[in-house]
Design a protein around this nucleic acid. Structure first.
Length: 649
RNA sequence: GGGCCCGUAGCCUAGUUUGGAUAAGGCGCCGGCCUUCGGAGCCGGAGACCGGGGGUUCAAAUCCCCUCGGGCCCGCCA
């Protein structure tokens, strides 16, 4: 006897009995929809219904009386998984589980299904593209961006286990002004070979170059503004310039050689702005020289990204280059089609998309959760010089993705909500409305630093590599004090999965819609961070199993009578429902929370009750099965969020 | 000015989609545990008018309206 969803079996039985009782007692019309809820405490049973409150209103009777009648009716019926049904409180009906039978079902199911326990498959699997990370190849991945790969990877893992066919995509944003700027700087330096990690090296060049370029640009604009005596405007620009000047001082101090060389080179160029724009135009055209230099820079960066991401077990099925969509005319064709719709208008030499009109014509505001009187800003599609903008190219890319898959989940920060909305509306305008419904913007809130705002353009950031390094280093010290007897190699290995696990957990445990303020304390304090705690708990369970002379031979599950044992069995039985919830609502944090709670309960059990030395042997065997099941569920849960479950640590 | 997101003990968070019983964890604080299988652990305690005000309801942290505080967006950046 085994079940992929043991708690579901209990739930079904309760529902069926409740329905039967209601049908026999009351008229169909007065019966409210049956919903069973999880009671706040185990003393109220494992499932409960509050429908008597509603029923009472309909019938003009007291809820408590109704609850008693229903409970009595059910009690006279036949049931298997239920121990008792009681009326309670002001009018609740509480269902209590028969733990003797239930423990048998739960523990046998977990141990039999093992690596598949909990992963209830969806009836209709779909082909889903999860696009995540997609950090621009200009600078290293910083901690503000690190929430993206971790969430994206967890979502992909969860949906895959749900039975969907998942393909993870990285969108390489190699087109645009910013890539032209870094390529410009790289070229001016004579294509230097990177010192250290390539993305870090590129990041430094990028910041210095864009700083120098911005200062040049601002100086000219200030001049212009003063010539036509726009004093207020000039003041504003001067403040911006001051900001960049202070950054220039920082950069010059940190990287004197690179800074001075780039400064000389930029000064020698009569019009750097023009050179950069030309490079950008040439790249969009697919001109060989531009291609060579920009691709070289981008590849250097991606090499660094792959290094970082593979360290934490994140890989991609596809690397999609934005430039390919330009060169292969996807963008051009999409633009041509879009121009034929009534939603594109000219503003000088600039092409604009009328998102507001599209939303109105297709009556999409209610469905998109927008107020009717909110006017959606228009989106610029093409610059005066004929080059395209990011979101324009993203329209073509989105169509490509939607052609390849039935559903597309884009993991993108919530600051891009408006652009994602405009993109979606453009798809409707193009006649892709049906497909656009399957385009999901998985938005997450920002990771910020308490002291200053991270900006990659200004080079003010903490890199993800730095965070991982610190975390692993700190874990190493921790391991060394706790287990000094281990070999150096072993210590390093443990430090690696503890440190990276802690970082992952810290970024995944919080609801993605909430902002996270990054502090070293938050990520590196292993006393408070739950990943090492859960890993430790798992290792503890493994340790007991190692010490057992044999697998449980004749467990007598009826002997598991302690409340904490019941709580663990119940919790384990609910893993499948938690998994479904996390998968259907894209909430990886539920898994993190679940694993932590299960670990808590297991540690309570561990401290209170003996396993191997328990008497009689049938009880010892039953507890051993409980330990084994907990081990399996902890491992399966950690696997969903990409955290290693170690046998020892 | 408009739009979106967030607000729960000193601090970090769960619970809000689908309203139900005593608002749940962790950190920190106070007091205990060499109890056998791993102390990255366990047990106990103090600590919250769920940002504020109205409303709907038998029932509101949860739904509606107003309001305050913080963040983000409204670019020929991405």
């Amino acid at each position: 006897m085994s079940s992929i969803n043991p708690f579901g079996e209990f739930r079904n039985e309760c529902e069926a009995l409740l329905k039967k009782a209601l049908d026999s007692l009351f008229h169909k019309a007065s019966i409210p929809k049956i919903v069973l809820e999880l009671p706040p405490s185990i003393e109220f049973g494992e499932l409960a219904s509050s429908l008597c409150f509603e029923l009472a209103k309909q019938l003009g009777e007291k809820p408590r009386g109704l609850a008693e009648r229903i409970a009595n009716t059910i009690s006279s019926m036949q049931f298997t998984m239920i121990k008792s049904v009681e009326a309670a409180g002001a009018g609740y009906i509480n269902f209590h589980i028969n733990y003797g039978k239930f423990a048998d079902l739960v523990l046998e199911s977990v141990r039999e299904l093992d690596e598949e326990y909990g992963f209830v498959k969806i009836e209709t699997p779909r082909k889903i593209i999860v696009e995540h990370t997609s950090v621009n190849p200009l600078h290293p991945i910083h901690i503000g961006q690190a929430r993206n790969p971790i969430l994206g990877d967890a979502i992909a893992r969860i949906l895959r286990k749900r039975g969907h066919v998942i393909s993870t995509h990285y969108y390489v944003d190699d087109v645009g002004r910013q890539t032209a700027i870094i390529a410009y700087g790289y070229q001016k330096l004579g294509k230097p070979r990177p010192k250290g990690k390539p993305d870090h090296f590129i990041g430094i060049i990028y910041t210095i170059t864009s700083c120098l370029i911005e200062m040049e640009r601002l100086k000219k604009e200030i001049e212009n503004a003063e010539n036509v005596s726009l004093n207020e405007e000039a003041e504003k620009l001067k403040r911006q310039l001051d900001d960049w000047l202070s950054i220039a001082v920082e950069l010059k101090e940190k990287y004197p050689k690179l800074f001075n060389r780039l400064l000389d080179e930029v000064k020698r160029d009569e019009n750097p702005e023009q050179t950069i724009n030309e490079l950008n135009r040439n790249y969009e055209k697919g001109e060989e020289k531009a291609k060579e230099i920009i691709r070289e820079v981008a590849e250097q960066c991606l090499k660094g990204f792959r290094e970082t991401l593979s360290r934490i077990g994140i890989f991609f099925d596809s690397w999609d280059w934005e430039s390919e969509f330009v060169w292969e005319s996807h963008v051009k064709k999409t633009m041509e089609k879009l121009r034929e719709t009534p939603y594109v208008f000219k503003c000088g030499n600039v092409l604009e998309f009328d998102a507001e009109k599209a939303a109105k014509d297709f009556n999409l505001k209610p469905a998109l959760g927008l107020k009717e009187d909110y006017e959606i800003p228009s989106l610029t599609l093409v610059r005066a010089d004929g080059t395209t903008l990011y979101t324009t190219r993203d329209i073509a890319y989105s169509i490509w993705k939607l052609d390849k898959a039935e559903k597309v989940i884009n993991v993108i920060g919530m600051e891009q909500s408006l652009a994602q909305l405009q993109l979606k509306l453009a798809l409707y305008a193009l006649g892709y409305g049906k497909k656009a419904e399957n385009l999901v913007h998985f938005a997450y809130n920002l990771v910020t630093l308490p002291s200053y705002k991270m900006t990659s353009r200004k080079g003010r950031y903490i890199t993800f590599d730095q965070v991982l390094e610190e975390a692993v280093e700190r874990a190493y010290k921790e391991v060394s004090t706790r287990s000094p007897h281990l070999s150096e190699e072993k210590k390093r290995e443990i430090a690696e999965f503890v440190g990276t696990g802690a970082v992952k957990y810290a970024l995944i445990e919080v609801d993605p819609s909430k902002p996270v303020i990054f502090t070293w304390e938050r990520v590196l304090n292993f006393e408070r961070n739950s990943a090492p705690y859960i890993q430790y708990t798992h290792a503890r369970a493994c340790s007991i199993i190692r010490k057992a002379t044999s697998p449980p031979k004749k467990p007598e599950y009826k002997l598991l009578k302690q409340p904490i044992e019941h709580e663990i069995i119940l919790m384990i039985s609910r893993f499948p429902e938690t998994f479904i919830d996390a998968a259907e609502n894209l909430k990886p944090n539920l898994i993190a929370e679940y694993a932590n709670l299960l670990a808590d309960k297991f540690n309570t059990f561990y401290n209170a009750l003996p396993v191997l030395k328990a008497q009689p042997p049938e009880l010892s065997d039953a507890r051993l099965a409980l330990v084994d099941a907990t081990r399996i569920v902890l491992r399966n849960a950690l696997g969903l969020i990409g955290v290693k479950a170690p046998q020892k640590m």
